[in-house]
Amino acid sequence: MKIVVDWDRCEANAVCMRAAPEVFRVDDNDNLHVLVEDVPPELLAKVENAVRRCPKQALARRELTNTDS
Score class of each variant (00 low, 15 high):
1 M>N: 07
1 M>E: 03
1 M>W: 00
2 K>I: 06
2 K>F: 14
2 K>P: 00
3 I>P: 14
4 V>C: 11
5 V>A: 03
5 V>M: 01
6 D>W: 04
7 W>M: 02
7 W>Y: 14
8 D>S: 14
9 R>L: 15
10 C>G: 13
10 C>K: 12
10 C>Q: 12
11 E>T: 15
11 E>D: 09
12 A>Q: 08
12 A>F: 02
12 A>T: 05
13 N>A: 14
13 N>P: 00
13 N>F: 12
15 V>F: 13
16 C>R: 04
16 C>I: 01
16 C>H: 06
17 M>I: 00
18 R>Y: 15
20 A>H: 05
20 A>Q: 04
21 P>C: 03
21 P>K: 05
22 E>C: 01
22 E>W: 01
23 V>E: 03
23 V>F: 06
23 V>T: 04
25 R>N: 10
27 D>Q: 07
27 D>L: 01
27 D>S: 09
27 D>T: 05
28 D>G: 11
29 N>L: 11
29 N>M: 10
29 N>G: 07
30 D>H: 09
31 N>V: 05
31 N>R: 13
32 L>K: 08
34 V>G: 02
34 V>N: 02
35 L>S: 11
35 L>V: 05
36 V>Y: 08
36 V>T: 12
36 V>P: 08
36 V>D: 06
36 V>S: 07
37 E>L: 05
37 E>H: 11
37 E>K: 11
39 V>M: 01
39 V>T: 04
40 P>W: 05
40 P>F: 04
40 P>Q: 03
41 P>Q: 05
41 P>D: 13
41 P>G: 01
42 E>M: 01
42 E>A: 10
43 L>W: 12
43 L>Q: 11
44 L>Y: 08
44 L>I: 02
44 L>P: 09
45 A>W: 03
45 A>F: 02
46 K>Q: 15
46 K>H: 15
46 K>F: 12
47 V>M: 07
47 V>D: 06
47 V>Y: 08
48 E>K: 15
48 E>V: 01
48 E>G: 09
49 N>Q: 15
49 N>F: 03
49 N>I: 03
49 N>D: 14
50 A>T: 04
51 V>G: 13
51 V>Y: 10
52 R>G: 13
53 R>H: 13
53 R>K: 15
54 C>S: 08
54 C>E: 03
54 C>I: 01
55 P>A: 06
55 P>Y: 10
55 P>D: 08
56 K>D: 13
56 K>Y: 06
56 K>S: 12
57 Q>L: 10
59 L>G: 02
60 A>N: 08
60 A>L: 06
61 R>G: 02
61 R>N: 00
62 R>E: 13
62 R>M: 07
63 E>N: 11
64 L>F: 02
65 T>Y: 00
65 T>Q: 07
65 T>L: 00
67 T>V: 09
67 T>Q: 11
68 D>Q: 06
69 S>E: 14
69 S>Y: 13
69 S>W: 13
